[in-house]
Amino acid sequence: MQTSAVPDLAHTHARPVHWLATATAMAAVVAAAGLMQPKAATASQAGAPGAVTAAAPAPGPAGVRLPLECGGAKSVVTGKASGDLDGDGSPETVAVARCDAGSGTPPSGVYVLTQGGETGPRVVATLLEPAQKLSVKDFAVRDGAVTATLLGYSSPDVPRCCPDQQEKVKWQWQGGKFVRSAAL
């Protein structure tokens, strides 16, 4: 019989104690990896120009140019409410505004504002155009939805002081846009 040039590898036979030691070491590595997780990923880098963080306050309507055509009259914000409407972790503000008329019930506009980074708050959506000639009552932001009662007129003969129609509506972010539906 010829002797092998390789040393005897009798110590390489796996015994149950070797398997137990290997399993214990692997369990320790997996447990350590589970404890050392990186911070949660965000869509924007902290400190990056224009980055909005969850701690950012809701934008206010003061100083924002709302798309209202008031002629020589001023526009007035009659209501505002904030909440995270699109699920991105940053609050948006919904502002109800109208022209400051001397009498009657001027139509309202409903606008969604978001932080615009260094440029300040900006309008990102119009939920109700003043051209629809509706007024807004019982306005709120709850559970990611905007709810309101819209007041309108059945005909041009109805005095503008006294709306004779109402509709309860809800706007909710779906598929990348605000969708209007009847509120229950």
Results as ranks from 00 to 15, higher is better:
Gly87Ile: 07
Leu150Thr: 03
Ala183Met: 06
Arg65Gln: 14
Ala40Lys: 13
Ala58Met: 07
Asp100Ala: 13
Ala81Glu: 11
Ala95Trp: 07
Leu20Ile: 11
Gly50Tyr: 00
Leu127Met: 15
Ala62Tyr: 10
Asp88Lys: 03
Met36Arg: 05
Asp8Val: 12
Val169Leu: 12
Ala81Ile: 12
Pro130Glu: 12
Pro156Phe: 00
Val136Ile: 14
Cys70Glu: 06
Lys133Cys: 02
Glu69Gly: 12
Val77Asp: 04
Arg180Asn: 08
Ala31Tyr: 00
Gln37Val: 00
Thr147Gly: 05
Lys74Arg: 15
Leu68Asp: 05
Val112Trp: 08
Tyr111Ile: 12
Asp100Phe: 13
Gly116His: 14
Ala183His: 10
Ala51Lys: 00
Trp19Ile: 06
Val136Gly: 04
Leu68Cys: 13
Gly144Tyr: 04
Arg65Phe: 04
Ala5Trp: 13
Pro159Trp: 02
Gln45Gly: 11
Thr78Ile: 07
Met1Asp: 15
Asp100Thr: 11
Ala32Gly: 12
Gly83Arg: 10
Pro163Met: 01
Pro57Lys: 08
Ala48Gln: 03
Leu127Val: 14
Ala43Pro: 01
Lys170His: 08
Thr12Pro: 02
Gln37Gly: 01
Gly34Tyr: 03
Ala48Trp: 00
Lys39Asn: 05
Asp84Phe: 12
Ala125Pro: 10
Lys133Asp: 07
Ala101Tyr: 08
Ala97Pro: 05
Gly79Tyr: 00
Gly175Asn: 13
Val77Cys: 09
Met1Trp: 14
Pro156Thr: 01
Gly152Phe: 02
Gly144Thr: 01
Gly87His: 08
Ser4Met: 11
Gln2Met: 14
Gly176Arg: 05
Asp8Lys: 14
Lys39Arg: 09
Ala27Ile: 03
Pro38Cys: 08
Thr126Tyr: 06
Lys137Phe: 11
Ala28Cys: 05
Leu128Arg: 10
Leu68His: 13
Gln165Ile: 11
Gly71Lys: 01
Lys80Arg: 14
Ser108Ile: 09
Ala62Met: 13
Asp143Val: 02
Val123Leu: 13
Lys39Gln: 08
Gly116Arg: 15
Arg98Gly: 04
Val112Asn: 06
Leu151Asn: 02
Leu20Asn: 04
Ala31Leu: 02
Lys168Cys: 09
Ser108Lys: 06
Pro106Asn: 03
Thr114Asp: 14
Asp164Pro: 02
Asp164Phe: 09
Ser44Ile: 08
Ala101Cys: 11
Val169Thr: 06
Met26Asn: 10
Arg15Ile: 09
Trp171Ile: 05
Thr12Tyr: 10
Leu66Asn: 02
Ser154Asp: 07
Lys170Ser: 09
Pro121Gln: 12
Gly116Met: 13
Val112Cys: 14
Leu85Met: 09
Glu118Asn: 15
Ala25Asp: 03
Gln115Cys: 11
Gly83Phe: 09
Cys162Arg: 01
Ala73Asp: 06
Leu66Ile: 12
Pro67Ser: 05
Thr105Val: 15
Ala54Trp: 02
Val29Pro: 04
Leu150His: 02
Lys170Ile: 11
Cys99Ser: 03
Ala131Lys: 06
Gly109Cys: 15
Thr3Asp: 09
Ala14Glu: 08
Gln37Asn: 03
Cys162Tyr: 03
Thr42Ile: 10
Val17His: 11
Asp157Gln: 04
